[in-house]
Amino acid sequence: MRVTAVIPARYASTRFPGKPLVDILGKPMIQWVYERTALSQSVNRVIVATDDERIRRAVEGFGGEVRMTRPDHPTGTDRLAEVAAGIDADLVVNVQGDEPLIDPRMIDQAVAPLKWGPGIAMGTLKAPIDSIEEYLNPNVVKVVTDRQGFALYFSRAPIPHPRDFAADLESHFSQIEVYKHIGLYVYRRDFLLTYPKLSATVLEQLEKLEQLRALEHGFRIKVANTRLTSQGVDTPEDLERVRTLLEATGR
């Protein structure tokens, strides 16, 4: 099966302009993401998708493959679909360009269900939430799934809601299983080409979670389990944490 990983990378960022090109131990961040993605056993090809010439030059400078895309895409998925329309692939993996510590095994875990389940159009990952702080944090997206591992709902709210002991959550938190969503997606190529054409939906706009569009239009999302972790870079403080981690591990 032909699996292509696409890494959308924008230079403009409200919180951290120029993020893909920030230096991490002598390499731009986008290179760390590219090289780690290429270590996935499932991926045959890695492409950076960007609308910025500076990122294009950086990627070509370290020998990576890059595709220039339109600058007016409203979402990363739209940028992904533009690239997918011009490549020969069965599955397309969306790897975030601000994940320099992405574990390639996470990609393999997300891809596996779609390799063996031809009827699955889209997949992603979830990981256990181990602290009340994460559970209550609206910046940590939660997900609940059915018994077959398909998403029932994604939310910034703390779901599921433990009605019987909500008033004393701290004492009972260990009794509930709660999961956070890991923003790594796998699409069957034909579904990815259809996805941007689906109209925006009420819940998607309310929660500001694009994956709800698929659910509201009746498409199922397979959610694989992982206990692997990564460290995204949203702020300069995150960048320093990543540098510290890489300096400690030497890789």
Rank of each mutant, 00 (worst) to 15 (best):
S199C: 08
I159S: 10
F62Y: 13
W32C: 00
A127G: 03
Y185P: 01
V242R: 00
N44K: 12
M29L: 12
I176D: 00
A166V: 07
I30Y: 01
M1C: 08
S13R: 11
T75M: 09
V242I: 12
T235Q: 08
T37C: 06
L246C: 02
S230Q: 09
E53V: 12
R147L: 14
R188I: 08
V3M: 05
H161G: 05
R241D: 06
A166H: 06
A157I: 12
R189Y: 14
T50A: 09
H172K: 13
I47L: 13
D164Y: 14
I107Y: 04
M122I: 10
N225W: 15
I132R: 07
V43E: 01
T69P: 04
H217P: 04
Y195V: 03
S230P: 02
G250Q: 06
R79Y: 00
E82P: 09
I120F: 14
G64H: 01
A85W: 12
I129V: 15
E207T: 07
G149F: 06
V186G: 00
G218Y: 06
T77R: 04
Q175Y: 10
G123C: 09
L192F: 11
A157G: 13
S42Y: 05
K19L: 13
V3Y: 02
G119D: 13
S42V: 02
P20N: 07
L114E: 04
A5D: 05
A200L: 15
A167I: 10
I7T: 03
Y179A: 02
K126E: 10
D51T: 10
G26L: 06
R105F: 07
R147W: 13
L245G: 05
Q205K: 15
